[in-house]
């Protein structure tokens, strides 16, 4: 193959520097973003291995020890964060719920990412009338009351996590499509893409190998900012009683249970809310940090 085409495309417009490394260097100096990242990694790790760390199962009940305050000694060990009304260990449930919430959020975001990127890239690449029509459709969809439809879907069909992913993903892809389209439109005219095209590369290969990797910045930023939105949506769905099935737990569900026990067992509200709020705050900080890192202005 021609060595020119094999050249790293990034080098074409930022000669001599790897933009990813550059962004990481800037990101590292952003204190809130780094703090957020560290918290997120720590919390995720805990969620993943947590169930093996605590001596309790997430659905293991000890009904005689219902709604015990934090620090109470249980049969198998100490309930560091207390227990819920059925005597289940809150810490275990929190970690279990955190895992499920992140799973839903990441999966739904991936759905939106996939639809949005494909749609946006195709629209921009085709250009002309087809682009205009495709983006007009996006505009029209923006005008639909989506949350309203989400509720309808959740009420109407058998509830499942899969449906939740798809429904939320289907709501969130519109903005992603717009962002990707904007990026691709710009990159399409860049020299390295033109060069590759003149070498007779297929469009799909071109988009995947040359265009998308160069749009990574905005895509990553928007993806990071979509995850907290999805987590909020999941919490909203739990509030309506349409969330995951008992005895499974998600952060949204735990919080919702906690609200009704606000005065009699405040820890049931406090710990899940704090975990939830810190996760969202961290995700937002990381997202903002990434944006600043990819678009250096100062």
């Amino acid at each position: 193959m021609n060595p020119v085409a094999e050249e790293k495309p990034t080098a074409v417009f930022l000669p001599g520097r790897n933009p990813m490394a550059e962004a990481w260097r800037r990101f590292r100096h952003n204190i809130p973003a780094m703090a957020g990242l560290i918290f997120l990694l720590g919390f995720l790790l805990l969620c993943l291995i947590g169930p093996w760390l605590t001596p309790f199962g997430f659905e293991e009940q000890n009904r005689s020890l219902g709604a015990a305050s934090p620090g109470t000694m249980g049969e198998a060990g100490r309930h560091w964060l207390g227990t819920d009304r059925l005597g289940r260990d809150l810490l275990t449930r929190l970690l279990h719920g955190g895992r499920l919430s992140f799973l839903v959020a990441v999966a739904a975001t991936m759905v939106s990412l996939f639809i949005g990127v494909t749609y946006g890239a195709i629209a921009a690449w085709c250009g002309g009338k087809r682009d205009a029509v495709m983006m007009r459709i996006v505009d029209l969809l923006y005008a639909l009351p989506f949350t309203v439809f989400l509720i309808l879907l959740m009420v109407i069909f058998e509830r499942s996590l899969l449906l939740l992913f798809i429904a939320i993903g289907a709501i969130e892809w519109l903005t992603m499509a717009r962002i990707v389209r904007g990026q691709v439109l710009v990159l399409k005219t860049r020299a390295f893409v033109e060069a590759a095209r003149s070498l007779g590369r297929r469009s799909s290969a071109l988009i995947l190998r040359h265009v998308l990797p160069n749009s990574m910045g905005p895509i990553i930023v928007y993806t990071t900012l979509t995850i907290p939105n999805v987590m909020l949506l999941e919490a909203f769905v739990s509030f309506l009683g349409l969330g995951v099935q008992a005895p499974q737990a998600s952060l949204g569900l735990l919080i919702n249970e906690g609200v009704s026990a606000m005065e009699s067992a405040p820890w049931l509200l406090f710990f899940p809310s704090v975990a939830f709020a810190l996760s969202l705050l961290s995700l937002n900080f990381v997202g903002d940090g990434l944006r600043d890192a990819f678009n250096p202005k100062e």
Partner: peptide, 15 residues
């Protein structure tokens, strides 16, 4: 039907 008491009872009986 969706309601906290019913869920708690069902979870206890399941257990």
């Amino acid at each position: 039907n969706t309601m906290e008491t019913h869920r708690l009872v069902a979870e206890a009986i399941q257990d």
